[in-house]
Design a protein around this nucleic acid. Structure first.
Lengths: 219, 219
DNA sequence: AAATTTTTTTAGCCAAATCTAAATTTTTAT
DNA sequence: ATAAAAATTTAGATTTGGCTAAAAAAATTT
C-alpha cells in the first residue's frame, strides 16, 4: 500500500509524539504540523479508515501496529537519506533535514535497499538517531553526538557516523575507537573545533567534522 | 520560482515534443502525458499565466525562453539522478526511469550541485543523453539515427529514443544496449526493416520502428 | 453541580488537478 | 463553399488537503 506525502507526514508526526505520551491529541498534532485542528480531524478519519490509526472521536489516538510499521519505514528512508547527504554529498548535519523531508516520500523499496547497501548498512544517522532496518527494528541507545557532550562529562565512544576509510584512517591515527573513554575539555566557537582528553593522555583538538562523526554514551 | 510536480511534467513533455516540431498540439501532449485534452487545456492556461508558455487558443503552443530554461533544469535533475542510480546504486539502465521521474521533482539547487560534483560532473546519462550543465547548456553529440547509418559502417549504440518499458524489453531480448557495437548489413526497401550484425554474432533483422528508436555514433 | 473554558468535531468553502459531456473552432473532404 | 470530421476549449463535477466559523463534547473552575 502506498500513501500520499501528506499522510506520511501525519503518520511520522504521530509516531514521534507518541514516544512521549501513549495517546496523542488533536491540538498537539496540529501544532506539530503547523496546521489547524480541523484539518487534523479530517486526516485522522482517513488514517483510521486505512487501519493505520486507533481513534475514537474526542478520545485521543495512537498508531495501530500497521501504522507503526509504516512510520518506521518512513523514518528509515529519512535517516538513510540524511546519512547519504552528510557522508556522500558533504552536507553539514544541520543542513539536511529539509531535503530529507522531501526525499523520504520517494516510494521505491528497491531504491532504499540499494541505497542502504551503498551506504554500507549504517545503523545511526548523522544526528546519532538509530536507523530502522528493513524489518523496522533499530538499536535503542542513549548515545549522543560528541558535539553535544557537556564539557568535563566523562563518556565512552559508542559508534562512528560512517565507515568511510578516510574517517577510520583518521580515527586510528588519533587512537580513537569504540570504547575509548574521553571527555570534552573546551569548545571553541571560532571554528567549532573541540578539545578532548582521552584518559591518561594529553588533551588535543579535533575538528567539528570529526566530532560530528563520533557518538558517545555519557558514563 | 518553484513549480508543482504536475507543472514540471507538462513542461518537460512539451520540451521533448517541440524537439520534433516547433509547435505542439493539445492532443499530442494529452497522449504523451496519458491524460485528456481538456486537462491539458487547463494546464496550458496556468503555464501561460506564469510566462512559461507561448500559447494562443486553438493555435498550438511552445515553451517561452523562461519555460525552456525550466525544462532544462528538470532534465538536468532527471539525468543526474539516472546516472546516480546506475553508476552508484547498481541499477540497470532500463530500471531507472520511473524512480528518476520522482526524484527529478525534489527542489534543492544545492542538492543537485552537490550530486553533480559527487558524480564528477558527468556529461551523458546512462541512456546516452547529454546532461545539461548548471546554465542549461549540454553537448550536442554527433549521434545519428540507426536508420541513417550507412551499410557496413561500424558504429556504437549511444542512445535510445524513448524510455518506454516496451522498447527496453525488446532491446534486452535482442541484447542491444548503450555501447553495443554493430553495423548495418542491408536495408530492405519493402518494409524498411534493416539487417544488422552485432560484433561476433549472427546478423538479424530489426523493424523500421525499432531502428528509428536507436541512435549510434559511427566509429 | 453549574458555569465557563478548552478541545475537538462538523459544516461549508477554496484551490489544484483531474475527469466527462457539451460547445466551439479549425481542418478536411465532398 | 459547405458539410462533416477532428481538434480544442468550456462548463460543471470530483478528489485531496487545507481553511474558517460554528457546534458539540470534555475538562476545569467556581
Amino acid at each position: 500500500m502506498n500513501f500520499t506525502a501528506s499522510e506520511e507526514n501525519y503518520i511520522k508526526a504521530i509516531y514521534h509524539l507518541q514516544q512521549s505520551a501513549a495517546l496523542v491529541t488533536t491540538n498537539e498534532l496540529a501544532a506539530q504540523l503547523k496546521t489547524k485542528p480541523a484539518s487534523v480531524t479530517d486526516m485522522l478519519k482517513k488514517l483510521k479508515l486505512k487501519d493505520l490509526l486507533l481513534y475514537e472521536k474526542y478520545q485521543g489516538f495512537q498508531l495501530s501496529n500497521k501504522g507503526k510499521k509504516v512510520a518506521l519505514g518512513i523514518i528509515r528512508k529519512h535517516r538513510l537519506w540524511e546519512y547519504f547527504l552528510v557522508n556522500k554529498l558533504q552536507f553539514g548535519w544541520d543542513e539536511v533535514h529539509e531535503i530529507a523531508e522531501d526525499l523520504e516520500h520517494i516510494n521505491s523499496k528497491l531504491l532504499i535497499e540499494r541505497l542502504d547497501a551503498f551506504l554500507n548498512f549504517p545503523r545511526f544517522d548523522p544526528h546519532g538517531d538509530p536507523i530502522p532496518d528493513v524489518n523496522g527494528r533499530m538499536e535503542v541507545s542513549k548515545q549522543i553526538n560528541l558535539i553535544d557532550l557537556a564539557p568535563h562529562q566523562p563518556a565512552e565512544v559508542s559508534a562512528v557516523g560512517s565507515q568511510s576509510s578516510e574517517l577510520l584512517d583518521l580515527l586510528s591515527h588519533k587512537n580513537i575507537g569504540i570504547g575509548t573513554r574521553l571527555e570534552v575539555v573546551k569548545k571553541f566557537i571560532f571554528d567549532h573545533s573541540i578539545e578532548i582528553k582521552i584518559e591518561d593522555t594529553a588533551p588535543f583538538s579535533i575538528s567539528q567534522q570529526l566530532a560530528q562523526s563520533l557518538f558517545v554514551k555519557p558514563l
